[in-house]
Simulated assay, not measured.
Amino acid sequence: MRGSAQFRMFFSLAWLSLTLSLGVWWWILGFRQAKTISEISISQERQLELNRVNRMLQLEGSFFLSMLTLGGVTLAVLSYRDHKRSKLIADFFSTVTHEMKTPIASLQLQIEVLLEATTNPELKRKLEKIWKENQRIESQMGNAFYLASLMQGESLYLETLSLQELKESYSHHEPDLIWDVSIPLQKKVHLDRKAFFAMLKNLTDNAKRHGKANQIKLSIFQVKNQICFLLEDNGSGFQGNKKHLTLPFLRHSKTSGSGIGLYIVKKLMEKMKGKLEFPNSSYGFQVKLSLNEVT
């Protein structure tokens, strides 16, 4: 998005330079032609007519160049303001999400402590509901944080991790996730751990909230030099054009959601030199994440 704003700035300046150059060239050419014609030996009456046409060309040419200049400068100024506004919005999102993450994490920890300490079934049920809602807020704040990072063009912290490390780390986040690993866990991939976990969390939340799935399986296998992570669920699936799933702010169901989850997943995968796909499935919904193997 930051690149898009810079492109608009560049385009407006290029348009201004090109149109001004063409306008000046047309103006000079018109004057030369008028001067050449006026030097031809003609009658006094014709000479007066040519002088009148010459003055008209000067006035119209000056007005035309003024309008071109005004339009180009206006476009450049508006593009610059839009660029500044986009940067301010991105900075605001980044600051707010960063400030909110600490109290949300603290609240999450306190709820977990209360869940372990309580023996009252009714209180435990209410605490579990609060815990789930807090998890949802944390997920949405994570989306906002990564969206702000993408808008600012920030880079990821890429590191080489084994599948064993990934599985052990992420199992704590999704204890109900079913793992099906058909390749050695010693194989390695190059990724941003936090961003990759956020993507998996995003995808599993989508399956539960939008697809009403109660069982999600993560299969890890290899195709040539790529390590593939296939998430599949037993939910209602998706009826529609899958090409539109990664469009930002486009909601595909009436359930709650921001419409940016899969867009963020796609952009993060591109930053990790990976690929996001939606394979056809006879039941439920499938999402495939592919990353290059590190040898």
Rank of each mutant, 00 (worst) to 15 (best):
L107Q: 02
N234Q: 14
V96H: 06
L18Q: 00
E270A: 11
K188S: 11
T255I: 09
K212V: 10
L185W: 02
S258G: 09
L68T: 10
L127G: 04
L158N: 11
N54Y: 07
H252I: 10
E99A: 09
V96F: 10
F7P: 01
R193I: 10
S171D: 07
W131N: 12
L203H: 05
L203I: 15
Y170P: 00
K271N: 11
I220V: 15
R85T: 11
I183V: 15
L57R: 12
R55V: 01
A195L: 00
L147N: 12
P175T: 07
F145E: 13
N143I: 00
S162I: 05
E159N: 13
N206C: 12
F92S: 14
K87D: 05
E60C: 09
T255G: 08
K212G: 08
P248I: 05
R55Y: 01
M1T: 05
Y170D: 07
F221E: 13
K167L: 07
L22W: 04
T204M: 08
A14V: 00
L18P: 01
D205S: 14
S4A: 05
S66E: 05
F11G: 01
N202Q: 12
I183A: 02
K208A: 14
N51L: 03
E133I: 02
K35Q: 03
L166K: 04
M199Y: 05
S86L: 12
E154W: 09
Y263L: 03
H210Q: 13
T95V: 08
G211A: 15
L289D: 09
H98M: 07
N280L: 14
E116P: 00
V53E: 06
Q226D: 09
W25D: 02
D82P: 04
F197Y: 00
V24Q: 00
V265C: 14
K129H: 07
L22S: 02
Y263N: 13
Q135S: 12
K288R: 15
S171P: 07
L230A: 13
L245I: 13
I37V: 08
G23I: 05
Q286C: 15
L185R: 05
S219C: 08
S17M: 05
L88R: 14
L203M: 15
L245W: 07
S106G: 02
Y263R: 06
Q6E: 10
N234D: 15
P103S: 03
K129F: 06
L88Y: 11
A148F: 11
H244Y: 02
N120I: 04
G61F: 04
S219F: 09
Q186T: 14
L147M: 12
S171R: 11
I264M: 09
F7M: 07
I111E: 00
R46F: 03
E39F: 02
L250V: 14
K273R: 13
S282Y: 12
Q186A: 03
L16R: 06
L65Y: 03
Q215W: 09
N292Q: 00
E270F: 00
E45D: 00
V294F: 10
Q186K: 00
L218F: 08
K129L: 10
V223H: 12
M56V: 04
G142H: 08
L262F: 14
Q108H: 03
A76M: 04
E39C: 04
L230F: 12
P121G: 06
L107C: 01
F196M: 13
G257D: 11
D82Y: 04
L166W: 09
D176E: 13
